[in-house]
């Protein structure tokens, strides 16, 4: 671990200024991902700017939305009564992630900006374009169980590990960001990016931009939403694949509106808009859901190790819809 300077500003603008001015500076949230990477040598910042002293740790509800300060800890957010009632998929996504201890520590912004769990990204003795631009991608032709099946590139096949980000992408959340030039509002679906030729960039944020809050619009869809995650262990494991689904039905049971996003399949939370389109106006039967998922999966790329992800994303999505129809969330 390279020696670094540590700052703990009390004001968001000061935090932004400190990082923006220094290419080797990083924000520090709960540290559950960054400190891990400092030890592994995955990242070697010269300055850490701790953002947990900035306030930004309240959840505010209005008629139309919920505004979550970036420093609200994952466990507090998951337990927030308004979130549980109005955005159950978000609460469920948080609860399906990491462990009780880590959720007590992890912040909202830090969770969204955690980096891929690709084993080669974390092993500095192997080539990795994301860690070291141009060095190659070891995951292609290597350990592939967690690799992307949608939207990957020849430069990187990693998946984004956050469960929270998937639920936010489904429920049309907005990420509020403060930069040197002021505030920006980014749709959650546009926070993360596909790897294309530049896997070293996980997100569309610019250096020095600070996540200050996440806003969740209220809607019938959000209130009837859930999160379904498949994993290799019953708990304390990253997703093989996951699905966040919100459902709004007409009186006759046809789909008035629907939201579907997937985790574990791509470099970003994958909003399945083509599947959503296919389901609108249909009865949400198991067959209809499967057919809709398959439309979204056209163009998926798999190999021996990741082929299971296609049936599994079909299964988690179908099961999520099944649960919502049964009345559980």
């Amino acid at each position: 671990m390279r020696p670094f300077a540590y700052h703990r500003p009390a004001d968001p603008a000061e935090a932004v200024a400190l990082v923006a001015a220094d290419p080797a500076a990083s924000f520090l949230g709960g540290g559950t991902n960054l400190v891990d990477h400092l030890k592994l040598g995955v990242t070697r910042p010269g300055t850490l700017v701790d953002v947990t002293g900035l306030g930004l740790d309240t959840v505010e509800q209005t008629d139309a939305s919920l505004r979550i300060g970036t420093n609200v800890r994952n466990s507090d957010l998951a337990a927030h009564p308004a979130l549980r009632a109005g955005w159950p998929a978000v609460s469920r996504a948080l609860l399906a992630g990491a462990s009780g201890q880590i959720r007590n520590q992890a912040t909202t912004g830090g969770n969204l900006l955690q980096r891929t769990r690709c084993v080669y990204f974390q092993d500095v003795t192997t080539p990795c374009n994301k860690r070291e631009s141009g060095s190659g991608c070891s995951a292609i032709g290597g350990y592939g169980r967690y690799n992307a099946v949608l939207g990957a590139s020849g430069q990187c096949v990693a998946t984004h590990p956050s469960d929270l980000a998937v639920a936010l992408a489904a429920l049309d959340a907005v990420v509020v960001v403060l930069g040197p030039d002021g505030e920006r509002r980014i749709p959650a679906t546009e926070l993360h990016r596909l790897p294309e030729e530049h896997p070293e960039h996980d997100t569309t944020l610019r250096h020095g931009e600070l996540i200050t809050a996440v806003e969740l619009p209220s809607s019938p869809l959000a209130a009837r939403s859930t999160y379904q995650k498949a994993r290799d262990r019953a708990s304390y494991a990253f997703a093989l694949v996951s699905a966040a689904v919100g459902l709004d039905l007409d009186e006759d049971g046809t789909v008035r509106d629907v939201r579907i996003a997937w985790g574990g399949v791509a470099h970003k939370p994958w909003r399945a808009t083509r599947a959503e389109d296919a389901l609108r106006g249909e009865q949400p039967t198991e067959d209809a859901v499967r057919a809709a998922v398959d439309i979204e999966l056209t163009g998926a790329n798999t190999d021996d190790q990741s082929a299971y992800k296609l049936p599994m994303v079909r299964a988690t999505t179908t099961y999520a819809v099944h649960r919502l129809l049964e009345g559980s969330r």
Partner: peptide, 20 residues
């Protein structure tokens, strides 16, 4: 290609947790 185990930690080499 490399010769070492790449699932070399307790997050990628799973052992049974309480919930299992």
């Amino acid at each position: 290609r490399f010769g070492h185990v790449v699932t070399q930690d307790l997050a990628s080499y799973h052992v049974a947790a309480h919930a299992d």
